[in-house]
Simulated assay, not measured.
Amino acid sequence: MNLNGRIAELPKEVKLLIGAFLIVLSAGYFTGFRFVNETTENNPKGIQENYLGNEDDLEAEVMKFKKPKREMLTIIHTHILSMAVIFFILGGLVSLINLKSGIKKALMIEPLFSVLLTFGGIYLMWLGWHFMRYIVMLSGILMTTSFIISVIIVFFQLFKKKTGKN
């Protein structure tokens, strides 16, 4: 079954629902992104300090302590589950747009791998694999880039005027 470009065939009410969903989803995603910036300053050292603390840094402006195991498991569990659902739904919408197959597959699958790398990497970093802070940052950048590109393309194809050809 070819789903390429089928988003244009959806009823207007469904398109409005999807458009509203994308706006609300983006508001939530970027609120979370803002929170990450506040807690990590979007750099590898900040990522590590957020989870492992900075008690050894006598010049730190804000004292942070290593997160306990239960808190780490809660953070990882909730983020992996919720982001899997987010990217599954967004991937389903991407499957309906008109786009080259390879790019479409990348936008559908990459963020799911990035979710595992990001939050699995955070846990491994917490366990002592400090180099994972770089993997966490890179996978987070890839995940956010995929999110932005997917939302923009879906949104614009959703409300693109239909042409006469099928």
Rank of each mutant, 00 (worst) to 15 (best):
L3H: 00
N4T: 07
I7T: 00
A8F: 01
E9H: 06
L10V: 05
K12P: 00
E13W: 02
V14N: 02
V14L: 14
L16C: 01
G19I: 01
G19C: 00
L22P: 01
A27P: 02
G28N: 07
V36F: 12
N42F: 15
P44W: 01
G46E: 11
G46H: 08
D56C: 02
D56A: 15
L58C: 03
E61D: 09
E61N: 06
E61S: 08
V62T: 13
V62Y: 12
K64R: 14
P68S: 11
R70M: 04
R70T: 08
M72G: 11
L81Q: 12
L81E: 10
L81V: 13
S82L: 10
V85Y: 11
V85D: 13
G91L: 09
L93A: 14
V94T: 14
S95N: 12
L96V: 03
I97A: 02
K100T: 08
L107E: 07
L107S: 04
M108W: 02
L112M: 15
L112V: 08
F113D: 07
S114N: 12
S114A: 15
V115I: 13
T118H: 00
T118F: 01
F119W: 09
F119T: 01
G121D: 09
Y123R: 04
W126S: 09
L127C: 09
F131Q: 06
M132V: 09
V136F: 03
V136L: 02
M137W: 07
M137H: 08
L138I: 13
G140F: 00
G140E: 08
I141V: 13
L142E: 10
M143F: 05
S146C: 15
I148R: 13
V151Q: 07
V151H: 06
Q157V: 06
F159L: 06
K160L: 12
K162Q: 12
T163L: 01
K165I: 15
K165G: 09
K165R: 13
